[in-house]
């Protein structure tokens, strides 16, 4: 009887979402009175064992195989499926990251088992043989679904940020697992990589100045660029903007774009459709600049200016420069 958490890492660098998943896995195992085990894939992950002990893993299964240097969805999914067959855990938990979903889905497909993604709550109930009740997100988080998972082995991923990471140290037992892998799973292993240049990104910037259809053109973003620069932030946009080719999709905030959580989000000429809002709602403060005082973004934002962004944004820039020049 075990809860197994699969550790998402890249050549030994842990993904931030793992710590929440480890904490949730440990809590679930404690609640059920069963063992908490973790799985690391590839020799470069062996160095993670002290972190995993700190998060309470009683057993760390380390998978070693010559083809497991870089990540590969088919290879990782096959390894996880083999570990599940060998150890028959009750629960298998992955991170709610792109890679986490991918590995759980790959393993589920190979085991012909269901898999429920992006769970925010898992209620084990008294009787483990019964279907499990859980809550998951739909529509990128705009909607919650109460669902039932009916399977002897329960595969899930946890929505990111659904569990606050906390440590609870134990001495872990290390167990090596050697999978049997044929060349068919090696086709989808990462062939090459380009490291990201460090710097502020849309996802991490403390200030985001975004424009929507109301900006009207690619050139119309110039004052938003200026405001973002004055505030040390970056420019974002809505899908109406990327669809018109005014800006690159890397700037898009929302369900199919980037999720942001800046100190302030300044949304100019954006109506606040649910698929946009879901990407911006974690912002600590929202200022909407819109000609329509009934616009969804205006009614949901903490602060609003009603007016033409083409006049309001330059006026804000001028005022910032005036105060900076004056002091």
């Amino acid at each position: 009887m075990t809860v197994l958490v699969i550790v998402d890492h890249d050549r030994g660098t842990i993904s931030p979402a793992v710590l929440g998943a480890l904490t949730a896995g440990r809590n679930l195992a404690t609640e059920l009175g069963i063992a908490f085990e973790v799985l690391t894939i590839g020799a470069q992950a062996d160095s993670l064992s002290s972190t995993l002990s700190a998060y309470g893993a009683s057993v760390i299964r380390q998978v070693h195989h010559e083809i497991l240097v870089d990540y590969g969805p088919d290879a990782w999914g096959e390894v996880l499926a083999q570990v599940v067959r060998a150890t028959a855990p009750q629960f298998v938990i992955g991170c709610g990251s792109e890679r986490g979903h991918e590995v759980i889905a790959q393993a589920a497909a190979r085991l012909d088992l269901p898999a429920v993604m992006n769970c925010t709550e898992v209620r084990p109930g008294e009787n483990l043989d019964r279907a499990l009740e859980l809550t998951r997100t739909r529509w990128g988080g705009s909607l919650l679904e109460m669902a039932e998972l009916d399977s002897p082995i329960k595969l899930v991923t946890l929505a990111e940020h659904s569990t606050e990471p906390t440590e609870s140290k134990v001495d872990s037992q290390l167990i090596e697992f050697v999978p049997s892998l044929d060349s068919s799973v090696s086709h989808s292993i990462v062939r090459d990589r380009v490291e990201r240049i460090a710097g502020v990104t849309l996802a991490t910037s403390p200030v985001v100045v975004s424009g929507g259809r109301g900006v009207g053109s690619a050139e119309g973003f110039a004052p938003l660029e200026e405001l973002a620069t004055l505030l040390g932030g970056v420019v974002g946009c809505s899908r109406a903007v990327t669809n018109n080719g005014w800006r690159n999709h890397t700037d898009q905030v929302g369900q199919t774009g980037t999720r942001i959580a800046p100190d302030i989000y300044i949304a100019c000429g954006i109506s606040g459709a649910i698929q946009h809002w879901v990407g911006a709602m974690a912002s600590k403060n929202i200022l909407a600049i819109n000609i329509d005082k009934e616009a969804n973004i205006v009614t949901k934002a903490g602060y609003a200016v009603i007016g033409d962004l083409h006049k309001v944004v330059p006026a804000i820039c001028t005022e910032i420069k005036r105060r900076r020049g004056g002091s």
């Binding site: 890249d10 660098t13 993904s15 931030p16 990540y71 990251s97 792109e98 890679r99 086709h187 989808s188 292993i189 990462v190 062939r191 090459d192 990589r193 380009v194 490291e195 990201r196």
Partner: peptide, 9 residues
């Protein structure tokens, strides 16, 4: 990916 861009063939 978290670390940058991955290439697959």
């Amino acid at each position: 990916a978290d670390a940058g861009q991955e290439l697959y063939t």
